[in-house]
Design a protein around this nucleic acid. Structure first.
Length: 341
DNA sequence: TGGGAAGCCCGTGTTACCTCA
DNA sequence: ACTGAGGTAACACGGGCTTCC
């Protein structure tokens, strides 16, 4: 099992050996850094003398320890390059944990999960009531429920699916929340900004990153997960739109080029039929760059007959239209083709 | 060692809620 | 006050991958 340190102080040095996670499914033993360069929040798994014990004896699994380096302990201007203040980071904990003020002035409790609390109540766990301002974050609640079970991996998953409201896998929040319809919770600007920052650094999350972000933003891990899923979908949609626009422009360019070449071909044929054989020009390769509209002319070997000249021209037309490298590159990268040697 | 089961995550499509003009 | 459009959080479902037995 991978061991690591969770250190305060010089986190840059302490975690410099860490690498961004690339494998989500096997990342339980990886360490989280929200950024490779500026470690804003660090969570480690390893043998330390703090924290939560996930598992001791299930299937030979080793003990997992989580070390959380609270963001509130780090100066805000070191947390966000943009130095956006995040009130909940340091204030909410002391003031009103779990409560975030939405842009519309609503006070939204993004963090309360009746399912967890009900579970805790059922099992007599010593946790806060849903309405108290005890400072018990959902993160803690999540793990508190996880730690009770031996298999951390499966439990995390079950928790997620339960939160997803998947009727095949679990019971939704709403089902457990007095049957109320799902309430759409608007993320605050600060939360969205922070998620955006995280998304810029890595557009997928491993479980630790998800939990860490959730704790930072005082959201449920499921909310973070959903946000990233939706964000990826939005990115892809936007990229698709851009690609569509580009292909549209390519199509228009090619259509125009085709039109011009057809016209050119007609003119050459007319020229050929109207001129005596000895005046006919040698076959000429004309190629036009669709971006700069420049025509490159290359004179091929002299063609003795009109038929050969027509053939050569037609062939060239075909070649020009077929430009295989036109689509893969943006128009700015399309260069005038090399003249045939 | 191969195969099935279970769990997890992701992509995609959809729904429902919210905001705003 | 009402309404339709747009944005988006949340959900549903299926598939791929990994791990375990």
């Amino acid at each position: 099992m991978e061991l690591a340190l969770s250190l305060g102080g010089d986190t840059q040095k302490s975690f410099s050996f860490l690498k961004k996670s690339t494998n989500n499914s096997s990342s339980h033993e990886e360490l989280l850094t929200s950024s490779n360069k500026d470690l804003r929040f660090c969570m480690g798994l390893g043998k330390s003398n703090t924290t939560h014990e996930l598992d001791e004896n299930n299937g030979g699994r080793k003990i997992l320890h989580l070390d959380l380096l609270p963001l509130s302990a780090v100066p805000l201007n070191q947390i966000m390059p943009s130095q956006i203040p995040f009130p909940w980071l340091s204030q909410n904990i002391a003031a009103e944990p779990g409560l975030t003020n939405g842009p519309a002035g609503k006070v939204l409790d993004m963090n309360r999960r009746p399912i967890v609390l009900e579970e805790e109540a059922e099992e007599g766990a010593d946790l806060s009531s849903p309405n108290s301002n005890s400072g018990v974050s959902s993160f803690q609640m999540e793990f508190s429920s996880i730690y009770r079970n031996g298999n951390s991996r499966s439990l995390i998953g079950k928790r997620d699916h339960s939160e997803a409201g998947d009727t095949e896998r679990g019971v939704s929040d709403e089902d457990e929340n007095n049957g109320l319809a799902r309430k759409k919770l608007r993320l605050t600007k600060e939360q969205s900004a922070f998620l955006e920052e995280s998304f810029k650094e890595h557009n997928t999350l491993n479980p630790k990153q998800k939990f860490a972000l959730a704790k930072q933003l005082k959201l449920r891990p499921r909310q973070v997960e959903v946000w990233f899923q939706n964000r990826r979908a939005r990115t892809k949609l936007k990229q698709t739109e851009l690609d569509c626009e580009y292909l549209k422009r390519c199509c228009e360019t090619l259509t125009e080029e085709n039109r011009r070449l057809q016209k050119e071909l007609q003119e050459l044929r007319a020229l050929k039929s109207s001129q005596p054989l000895y005046m006919q020009l040698p076959a000429t390769t004309l190629t036009m760059c669709p971006s700069c509209e420049r025509v490159a002319t290359t004179t091929a070997a002299a063609v003795p007959t009109a038929a050969a000249a027509t053939s050569a021209t037609a062939t060239n037309t075909t070649l020009s239209l077929a430009k295989p490298n036109l689509f893969p590159f943006p128009p700015a990268q399309v260069h005038a083709p090399q003249a045939a040697s």
